[in-house]
Nucleic acid binder design. Structure first.
Lengths: 197, 197
DNA sequence: ATGCTAAAATGACCGCGGTCAATAATAAAT
DNA sequence: ATTTATTATTGACCGCGGTCATTTTAGCAT
């Protein structure tokens, strides 16, 4: 007999259904992008009922967090493989895949920003995890790039993140479309990492 | 007879209906906050049909932009009245009403971020306008605060904005709740405005 | 006053995310 | 193999934002 405090056993079919849902979602997204995804379309493609979807994911955003988080992680892995950058342009180039994906769709950018923070320490979501990973990566790089030394690498990295987000935001702002994303970020980071006065 | 190219005349009742809708919205928000606002509740309180709402506002977000933009403008006016700040803590104090309102509700913060950029130069929305105003205000202050001089006040102001947003974001992140909003922003701004190396 | 036309208001309707009581399938115990 | 307790699935249903063909009203011309 099972003890009352035992954790609920997960049936094999649960994993299969979940995999079907994820696969169907990726199919739908490959066809029309993230924004156009409809839960009804996903469950139809997966061959399950609508209620099943919400038994596997808290809501539509939770699925998006997983899918976008996966992609983001792949981009971060790619960035890590770039080799430690030595200059600001090099740093920007190394992070390019990440920034590229984050601004691939307005919907994606907004969702990432919305879930970039962990609502509770206990349950850090996929995207919050990616932000932490981005931060740690840049922090490590800060010791190889030739920067100012009056503040900690941690603070330097937080600043890089802040300026990267600012630059991405301005990509969607018609008032500041004179400069390209890379140029703007370069201006910011030079001023942040190597101040002259 | 009216000419075909004449602009459509606006009837008096249009203004009255719009005013009723705005007033009803403010009432509803005063009761339960921005997030809990339901269009159905607003139109019921205003005594009009649902379709009327959407004849006056493109969508629910458009109404929110107007209402939140109004509040933001009031906060900015208050900030302007504070007198030109001379130190970083003073700068933070001067901007406090603005930051306070922006983080009064998670829903409000997300909406502000989402509409902070003007989608098209032609149609700059209320919130994008406030961002521009915030930026100009800080830019002007940059000439009185004792800062580094190697970069333009414009760039300095953009950085202040970026760090303010970063600090507000982290307010909603349980992983970084050790520091308070003001302390974190102060750390950022000191490093940004008065680098030591 | 009356007729006419453009503007404004209406509410039934739709799309889509999300819920939940009922039902089916699974795995363990006998 | 049968029973039983638990987990997974189902689909009718709801809430709420948004649409649009139809109706009502305002304002001008006669």
């Amino acid at each position: 007999m099972r003890l009352s405090l035992m954790q609920k056993t997960i049936q094999k079919r649960t994993l299969k259904t979940r995999a079907k849902l994820i696969a169907a979602s990726e199919e739908v997204i490959a066809k029309g992008g993230y924004e156009a995804l409809r839960v009804e379309e996903v469950v139809q493609a997966a061959g399950v009922a609508k209620g099943t979807f919400f038994a596997h994911f808290r809501d539509k955003d939770a699925l998006m967090e997983i899918l976008i988080g996966e992609k983001l992680n792949a981009c971060l892995t790619q960035a890590e493989g770039h080799g430690t950058p030595k200059t600001v342009p090099d740093l920007i180039e190394a992070l390019e895949p990440v920034h590229q994906f984050m601004t691939s769709e307005r919907y994606v950018f907004d969702l990432i920003i919305r879930y970039s923070g962990a609502a509770a320490v206990a349950e850090i979501g996929p995207i919050a995890y990616c932000f932490e990973r981005y931060f740690r990566l840049v922090e490590a790089w800060m010791q190889t790039v030739d920067t100012r030394t009056d503040i900690t690498p941690e603070l330097l990295a937080e600043g890089v993140q802040a300026f990267a987000i600012q630059s991405m935001s301005l990509k969607y702002c018609a008032l500041h479309s004179a400069q390209s994303f890379s140029d703007r970020l370069e201006t910011y980071l030079k001023a942040w990492l190597t101040p002259a006065a």
